[in-house]
Design a protein around this nucleic acid. Structure first.
Lengths: 186, 186
DNA sequence: GTCTATATTAAGATAGAC
DNA sequence: GTCTATCTTAATATAGAC
């Protein structure tokens, strides 16, 4: 039967917000219970593996979000630059205009389960390929497209760290604003 | 009297390695005791504030390292490009060729004490100004020099995240190799 | 399915001997 | 200064009622 109080997507979403802000070790089951509105025992019923399973579900959930809001829009027909514009808007939303850390960053510190690290590595790969594909479509060579895609991810991850440390979201917003250029020319 | 088993610098260094790899919440006093060779009670004797004080000492320690190995070399006489080359070598060492996370990143996740966040923000500022100063010396305008300095830090932080997620240190090494160019031309 | 209650283990922190 | 021993609190995890 379906879960009564909160569905899986809502739960994964609440968990994601905690994990990305506090990291794996910094997020306790008490935190997760409080944020989700469920008791700890209920979380164990739905995720027998405990925190580890919840983190994996959160990672899968963000993977689906990227599939729907980043990868899919980039594969649609139409001019690459328009698709990229849509995606930059979605990225600003996902990262709260620079206020929310990237899961690739906060969940990749030592301490988390190996399965999580593997999921993150695979998510990175999908993201890179998605960016490289659209860069290629906009006229860049395979080699340059891949390099620019990697540069785009470096810009996103690096600017998020600096925005967090300084409390200045503009660093992230500037990096995002430069993405269309980065993915369409050399 | 001086500390018998390990001195403050050695202790801060061991603590730094743990904190940068595992984050603030991910590092326990047991970890710190095991790594330092001291018992927990001894750590409390030397750092009455516990983990918080140890993290602040580690942050101060890395601040001194940067002062000696990054800021000072960049202020020495001689061609800016030569000073930058020395600094890139020191950065490779500090980050273990891309294997070791940046403290600005791993210690800035929510969960750490506010004093730590303040120390990181101030460390970032010093680093940015140091890079901007040498970029200025090599002929860039004040505005461009500051922008290139920020770009350099974005490259370092972003490439470290990607190197960690992928397990591929080359991403970091390439970013470091591009630093001299970044800080000397527009 | 979710709850209250409780068990178990680990973390942070202190007291007092040497 | 550093230790052993202990305390307190919080975290992970399970049992059993509803």
């Amino acid at each position: 039967m379906a879960h009564s109080k909160v569905n899986d997507a809502q739960l994964a979403d609440k968990a994601l917000e905690l994990f990305r802000q506090q990291g794996y070790e910094g997020t306790s089951l008490n935190d997760l219970a409080a944020a989700s509105g469920l008791e700890k025992a209920s979380l164990y019923y739905r995720f027998p593996g405990g925190k580890k399973d919840i983190a994996l579900a959160a990672a899968a959930h963000v993977g689906q979000w990227f599939e729907a809001n980043i990868f899919a829009p980039l594969q649609k027909p139409g001019p690459p630059s328009e698709r990229i514009n849509i995606v930059t808007r979605n990225l600003r939303t996902f990262y709260g205009d620079g206020a929310k850390p990237c899961v690739l960053d906060s969940l990749s510190l030592r301490g988390g389960p190996p399965e999580l690290a593997a999921a993150l590595a695979s998510a990175y790969k999908a993201w890179l390929e998605s960016f490289a594909a659209v860069a290629r479509e906009s006229g860049l060579s395979r080699r340059v497209a891949e390099e620019q895609a990697r540069q785009a991810l470096i810009q996103i991850e690096g600017s998020l760290v600096l925005s967090r440390v300084t409390g200045n979201r503009k660093i992230f917003l500037d990096a995002i604003a430069a993405l269309p250029d980065l993915l369409t020319r050399r």
